[in-house]
Write a protein that binds this DNA or RNA. Structure first.
Lengths: 135, 135
DNA sequence: TCAATTCCCTACCAACCTGATAGACTTAAA
DNA sequence: TTTAAGTCTATCAGGTTGGTAGGGAATTGA
């Protein structure tokens, strides 16, 4: 399941997508409109900024805004960033791969199945963007 | 990601599938062969028993065994039982559904996408059984 | 009937994660 | 130089995860 943090992140990104190229948006505005605890949202937005998804401006008239075209930001990227691995096992994860300790990947039945599940999910998440989310 | 508990559960079930209809298998044997902490495994097997997946016999010559044909036990069932929801959001879960607090399911972009992801995953997990896992 | 064997049950624990808050600091505009 | 913002560090309660301890209950067989 996506963490609450991830759900908040998506809500905030949806809001910012709707306001793409309309100047900085206040954290407090997003917080109110999307009903996300202010200080928690701060952390999330900051993380998204550090990852290059968002950019910000300080001081009066400041706020957050998308740093690139929402049609170019994949949902899969956000999930990985905020929520972690998409795969159900470390040994089938593309971005968070870890070798199985006590099981040979070549003859592990779970392994192959979970690769299928991963690819099925990625087939969707890699082909949807923030723009799809907001429309 | 599947919890370690879930991974242990699948390993144990794989072992029991290989020994289907060959009499009870000791917890300690599964523990050794599959390298699963004994007491932790006890809990897991007990839970699987209570859910009707396994059955057991006490005393000498006792142990655990599958209570039905491994070809009839879906992987999806085990995942839900031991790991929880398969869907990425409560509001798109079939077995663990919860209404979204601050978002209208009808116009929530995430919602529709996550239904697709869920169905893609279920397309696999609902159509594989313990038997597929072991072979 | 008694002892050995095996699962069953309750309780507990440390470590970590999650969701959230507090407060001070920095930058920039007016 | 005041005010409006984002930035940073720290902290916290509560829950989950992975795992352990120890005795109880049922079954077998001698």
């Amino acid at each position: 399941m996506l963490s609450k943090k991830s759900q908040y992140a998506f809500k905030a990104l949806e809001y910012l997508t709707e306001r793409y190229k309309q100047g900085p948006v206040l954290i407090s505005e997003i917080s109110k409109k999307k009903k996300i605890p202010l200080k928690f949202l701060e952390n999330i937005l900051l993380e998204l900024k550090k990852a290059g998804i968002l950019d910000s401006k300080k001081g009066k008239g400041g706020g957050y805004f998308l740093s690139k075209d929402p049609a170019k930001v994949k949902v899969a990227t956000i999930v990985r960033l905020v929520n972690g691995p998409i795969a159900m096992l470390p040994c089938v994860s593309l971005y968070f791969y870890e070798r199985c300790k006590h099981c040979d990947e070549k003859k592990c039945g779970l392994h192959d199945m979970m690769i299928e599940v991963r690819d099925a999910s990625l087939g969707i998440l890699e082909n949807r963007t923030l723009k799809d989310l907001a429309s």
